[in-house]
Structures are given as C-alpha cells and as structure tokens.
C-alpha cells in the first residue's frame, strides 16, 4: 500500500556522518513503533548495516533494535519518520535511494503470527542541503 510514498520526495540530506531521509508509513493507520520489523536502506546500491541506521518518530531517535521493543510509542500515519544512516556518501548531487520497509500488522494474526507487510521503494533524489 502506498509504496511510492515511502521515501518522501526531496527529503535526502547529507549529514556530517552520513545521510538522512524522511519516510512515510505505507499503511492506512498508526502502528506501534515496534511494528517496524525491517528497515533496509541503500544509497547508490550500498546497503547500510542495521546498526548504522537510526529511526526517529515523535522527536525521538532510536536504533532499529530499540525500535523493535518500543510498543508504547506509535508512528502516526501522517507523520514522517526520519531515517539517519552513518555512511560514506559518494560525491554527486543526486543519489539512488532504496528503502525496504517491513511492518507488522498487529490486528492480523494468522495462526498466532501477525501478518508482515513488506514494501520496497526506490527513488533517485537530489541532495536537499547539508543538515547539521
């Protein structure tokens, strides 16, 4: 659902330690942060290791491992999530970004295991500006 909306257009920034981008929830309603079971990010085909990625909603950044245990917070369906990646960014003003987002649908347990919905989005984007 809404896979083309996962990567927010024009949201790619280069940071001192890497890069950042905004992502949307490819679903119709808010989900607990812990529903984010998979968040793969690649820039120009170079996939970031999971421990180089942080994920921020509601003004709080956490590692992907910490996100999985965070069921008290929710990611509202209209809010951007901010993904920050520690990485070497190759030169150039435009980059291909790939995000694979797997979210658990908490009310759809099939045989005791909630459905996992995985969506992939690829966009080539110009770097917006250098964020601090």
């Amino acid at each position: 659902m809404f896979r083309e909306r996962i990567i927010v257009d024009g949201s790619l920034t280069v940071t001192p330690g890497g890069y950042a981008l905004a992502v949307r929830l490819p679903w119709y309603r808010a989900l607990p942060v812990s529903a984010v079971e998979q968040l793969d990010v690649a820039l120009d085909g170079v996939r970031a290791p999971a421990d180089a990625i942080s994920f921020e909603v509601n003004g709080r950044a956490r590692s992907l491992a910490a996100a999985r245990d965070d069921w008290d917070e929710s990611w509202y369906v209209l809010d951007d999530g901010v993904v920050r990646v520690a990485a070497e960014v190759p030169p150039g003003s435009a980059h291909e970004v790939e995000v694979v987002l797997g979210v658990r649908i908490p009310y759809l347990p099939v045989a005791g295991k909630p459905l996992l919905m995985t969506e992939r989005c690829v966009k080539t984007m110009s770097v917006k500006e250098t964020a601090v």
Binding site: P32, S34, E37, R68, D69, R104, P106, Y107, P109
Partner: peptide, 12 residues
C-alpha cells in the same frame, strides 16, 4: 477500534 493482539514483536 483495533484488536492489536500483535502489538509486541516477541509475543501476542
């Protein structure tokens, strides 16, 4: 309303 039995990752 939603019956989010799968709220947590580790168990229902």
């Amino acid at each position: 309303a939603n019956a989010d039995a799968g709220l947590r990752q580790d168990r229902l």
